[in-house]
Every structure is written in C-alpha cells, then in structure tokens.
Design a protein around this nucleic acid. Structure first.
Lengths: 344, 344
DNA sequence: AAGGAAAATGGTAGCGCTGTCATGATAGCG
DNA sequence: CGCTATCATGACAGCGCTACCATTTTCCTT
C-alpha cells in the first residue's frame, strides 16, 4: 500500500490567484519589498521596482485589496449614500463625486436609502464594516443611532445637498434661501395667488425647506401661501396631475411654484396640451435647472443648482482631508442661480 | 527609577473598534461561536444566539467585513461597471440591480468607464482585487486583456444591455431587431426619406446596431438610409441641433429615426419652437421609452426598453447563480415594445 | 440503560497583505 | 578615515475573522 502524502496541504487557499509572495519570488525579492514597489514606489530602488513590475505583468498579478485593507486598515473605498436613484439630481452628484474620486484611485460603494432613515442607518453600519476611507451622505438629517455612529466614527464624513451644521464636512446650498428667491421673483412679477406644489415633502424635506422660504416671503407681503402636496414621486406625471388639482382647489391661482423641474415641466406640458397659456393663464416655476426646462416652450423659470459641481467639490474636499492637508473648509456654499425663463 | 511596562502592546490595532472576540467574551462564548451566531444563526442554540446578539447590541459591534471577506474569500460585493452616468438608461439598470441586490445583502461597487474600454479593464482589475462575488458590466464588448481576465475569473459575470454570446450570463435586448422594428414602422407609415440620427456611435455602439437594423429594412425596400452622426452626447441639446443639420443636408427628409429619446425629444421640441408640424412636416421617432416622450405633444413614437427590469432580472439571475442553484438561464431576452405615439 | 446520531461548541491555523522595527549597504562630513 | 545620516531591504508578527476538524453535549432509538 502506498504511503499517504504527508498532510502538507493545510492551506485554506480556495483560489489559485497569484499572490504578492509569488511575484516577489519571481522578482527575487522579499514580499515586503514587492509590496513597497507597488505601493510606495519611491521607497525602493529603480532596478527592484522594474523587476517587480515586470513580474507583476508576467504573472498577471492582481493585488488582493481585501488583504491589503485588513493589514493597513485603509481601504480606498468611499461610501456614498443617496436617498434615490430615480431623482436625477442625486445621480449628478454621484457623477461629480465619481469622476473626481476614481481619478484618485478611490472606489465608490453605493447605497440607496429610498428616503428611509432606518435604512440609512443599516447602510452606514455595513459601510463602516468596510473600513471606508470616508462616507458621503445626502442631507443632514439622520436618525439618532446613525448620528451617534457617524459622529464617533473618526473618518471624514461629507454631508451634501443642503447647507447647515453637519457632523463634519458639508457642501450644499441654502434651500430656504432658494425658496425665498423664487417666491420673491414671482411676487416681483406681480403674481399674488401663488400655490407651492411639492411631492412627499416628508421625504424630500429639502423641498419642504424651500417651501418654508417661499412661505416666509409671501407672508411678509401679506399673501397666502397654500401648499399642495402630492403623495407620489416628483415626476412629470405627478406634475401633470397636480396641475388639475391646483386648478380645482385654487381656481384663481396665477402662478405655481413647483418643488422641482420635473413637476414643473410635467405641469407645463400638460397645460400646453390643454391649451392653457403659460404664463398668460398660469405662470410656472421649478427648481434644479434641468436641461429639459430650457428646451420646452416657454422656457422654464427655475433655480439652477450646481449638482455635479457639488459632487466634485465634495470629492475634492474629501481628498484634501484624506491626504492630511489641513487646508480645507468644513462648509461650502455652492450657490444657486435664479434662471428666469419665459414661463413666469 | 520605575520599571518600564513590559512591551505588552505589540498590537497594531489602530482603531478601537469592538471586535468579535470582545463580543464573544461578553457573551461568554468562544469567538467562533459568536461568528456563527451572526452568520449561521441556525447552527447555534437559541440561548447563545440571544446572548451574542445582546452583546452585539450592547457593545455596538460593527462586523469588520474586510476581515471576514479575507478569511472566507467571499465579499458580498458586486461590481457594476457602466459606461456613463449621464445617460439615464444605465442609471435605471443600476437601480434595478441595486434594489434586488441590496435586499439580499449585497453591496454595489460602482465603476464608470466613460465609454473607454481600457478604463473598463482597469476597473475590472481593481474590482477583482476586492474579491467581488460577481461582476456586472454593460455590453459585450471588451478589450482583449479584459476579456481574458474575465473569462478566467471563475465568478459569475453578467453582461447586460445587449443580447449575444457573452462570457457567462447575459440579459439584454436585440438592438438590431429594435432598429428593424422602428424602421419597419416608419416605412409602413409611408415615409420613404428617413434619416437616422445618432451621437458618437463608436461609443454608443448599441445605437449603431440599431442603425444596422434600420438600414437593413430600408435597403430591402430599395430606400436610402442616410446617417447623421453627431459628435456630442445624445442629449436634448444635440437633438435640437441635429434637426437643423438634417434639414440642411437632407431637406426632403420626411422622418427622422433618432438613436434615443433625448435626441428625439430635443428635436421635437425644437421643431415645435420653429413652427414645424410633427409629424406633418417631419416625423420623429426615438428609442428607450422615457417618460418625457409621453408628456410632450405630440407624444413620441419610440421603443420601450425595460431598463429597470433588465437590472432586476440580471440581479435575480446572479443571485440564483450565487446561491448555487443550477436552474438559471445563461441568456435572457428582455423584449422591447414599439410604442406608437403621435409623432409618426 | 446503552449506543449512536445529531447538535452545539471550541481550538487551531491561517486568509494575503503591510506596520514596525532591525539590519545591511551607501553616502556624507569634518 | 572613522562616525553618523540616509537609503534599501528583510524578518516577524498580526489585522479580525472564518474554515476545518475535534470535542463535548443533547437527544433519540430500541
């Protein structure tokens, strides 16, 4: 009978991936030197770096980032948590973040809360488990557990979209001011009976903040500030439906201030189809400055929010912070711009 | 002088995060039992599970997923690589993926290639380093290195968007057929001088495939199939501009078949502004079935592509595969639907 | 009550990499 | 020419967790 092979293979390796040690061996250096050749190229001699890189190429080595992250407790992952992917606003922020972060070798871990703060908390917990280098989240509102967790985390946290007292870094705009800005524009234009239309303001609470600004301006002028809140997402469809509801509930309405451009454009297109003149019969204003608004006739009056810039700026500040630079600002106001179109 | 403390602290721990061992100690069990209580709850008794969970809660333990992944060489990360985030089509696929995968406890690692296959290769390399459970990428075209890498990877790979012979799994639709479908519709409507308008077809090669289908139909009818290719992204703006170019270069054009709804809607809105009748003066067709098309007047004739479904289905197939079920199909055709509007 | 299967728990040894410190090689200086 | 400062490299151990196997406990069965 044949002797069994000694139980030499205690290894638990389940994949036959090339490891750094093999690369090192091929290059005739120690593993740690190979590691340095890849991660701190300035700390090894030119010749070793060359031969390590050559071995990497030849063997098709793909670094195991998980092992590296565990050993160094740094991961070059950045968690990005948004409340929705349907709303293109968040996607544009992600895009701005992405292009800046990827260029610096960071990867984005994407999470979607669907406007649920408990879900956000769960996602944050999970992401912390990934030892993310930083975390970006949309908005300043979190549930208590989440807030505590983040506040004690010890890595950079970037809260985007709105401006205010955040946990750490903050890039956003002043939504109350934006609401005031548009309301003032409408009042200046001579409209008096103005309805604000939003969708699920408990979710899209930034739209609620804009309403607060709107209301403050109207009250100051002694005007009513009726609110119509749709219980749907803020889509073209909802905008179209809201128009009918406004006309029914507030027949004398002269202008509608919509919480976003989708709603506004939906209403505008619906008005057109119904033969209503905009702004003759009814004026319409939106928020965001989506391209669509500039292509419909009449062009939509709206407030331009620099969404990609917001993402880019947030990413830049994070990178600055992560690279240890002390020169960064905790808060950035990305300003909005009133874009007067033909619809008011 | 006082004796130095023995060099007890050889620990490299840089964070003071609670570890599983501490949880185990608090619960009076061994670390491995605590691990099981969290990851294989059915393999421990009710009482131990309870006390472990209680300790987790009390200590605020957040599992270190990196360590867990290294030990188990499984990561519950799924890489998703798309060519663009500007194009809402990909975002909707991501959304479908996201909602299904997150519900199963997977996280999405998002990558954006900007239509650059070399960039895709780089992203794939990085993502493989994260020991992703699976990888989703948009499209069947990759550079050679990328293709080789993926083909040898050994984990599920899902190629979405278009239908064809993929590396592994594939969920998509037949773009050539979609092009034929719309072309046939236009021809059936009696249009003969039809221009196809696309944007950067080398990037958006699926639009190129639709053009191939389009051309085949027209040629079969003995008609010319002129192509106007814009060197911009396929946006509303580009659509508006392309209209002028079509009218200039092909003044007798009766219908325009646009590569997507954004272009088509841009052209339609521009036509409107210029007082052109659609479809009286010129017919317009798009592709995708974006909501916008159904809100403009005339409603846009388009082809509905089930984008979120595509993402959801892709995610479901992946999950099925990942959970070891052998009952899955390598290829899924998510069918498109011709949506006849008022613009043709 | 004895025997055996199944369930519950624990010990050990890594997963692949990098931080830390130690060592050897090279250069710089008066 | 000796002595220190710098650079290049390596040995070792450990990041926090889980696979694997061994052991103990529990629960049936006849």
């Amino acid at each position: 009978m044949s002797k069994d092979l000694p139980a030499a293979n205690k290894s638990r390796r389940r994949s036959d991936q090339i490891t750094l040690s093999q690369v090192a061996q091929a290059a005739g250096v120690s593993p740690i030197t190979a590691s340095r050749a890849l991660n701190h190229p300035d700390k090894v001699s030119n010749s070793t770096r060359q031969s390590v890189l050559e071995s990497v190429e030849r063997l098709g080595y793909v670094p195991n980032l998980i092992a590296g992250s565990l050993a160094s407790s740094r991961s070059r992952l950045i968690a990005v948590i948004v409340p929705s992917l349907i709303n293109s606003v968040f996607v544009e922020v992600i895009k701005g973040l992405q292009e800046t972060l990827e260029a610096q070798g960071y990867q984005i871990l994407l999470g979607n809360t669907d406007y649920d703060l408990d879900r956000e908390y769960q996602l944050v917990r999970t992401f912390l488990g990934w030892s993310c280098s930083a975390l970006v989240t949309a908005g300043l509102r979190h549930n208590d557990a989440c807030h505590t967790l983040l506040a004690n985390w010890g890595h950079p946290i970037m809260e985007v979209m709105e401006l205010g007292n955040g946990i750490d870094l903050n890039v956003g705009l002043d939504h109350v001011a934006a609401g005031r800005c548009m309301a003032s524009h409408l009042v200046d234009r001579g409209y008096q009976r103005i309805v604000y239309v939003g969708a699920r303001l408990s979710h899209d609470y930034r739209a609620g903040m804009r309403y607060e600004g709107h209301k403050a301006v109207l009250k100051a002028k002694g005007l009513e500030a009726p609110l119509l809140e749709m219980d749907t997402l803020g889509t073209l469809q909802a905008g179209a439906e809201s128009l009918a509801q406004v006309l029914q509930h507030y027949p004398a309405t002269q202008a509608i201030h919509f919480a976003n451009d989708d709603l506004a454009a939906g209403a505008l297109l619906a008005a057109q189809r119904q033969g209503l003149q905009v702004p003759g019969d009814i004026a319409i204003a939106g928020f965001n400055g989506l391209p669509l608004g500039q292509h419909i006739t009449p062009k939509l009056t709206t407030i331009l929010s620099p969404r990609e810039d917001m993402g880019r700026l947030a990413a830049q500040e994070l990178i600055r912070r992560l690279s240890g630079k002390s020169v960064y600002r905790r808060q950035h106001d990305v300003n909005f711009t009133l874009q007067v179109g033909e619809s008011t």
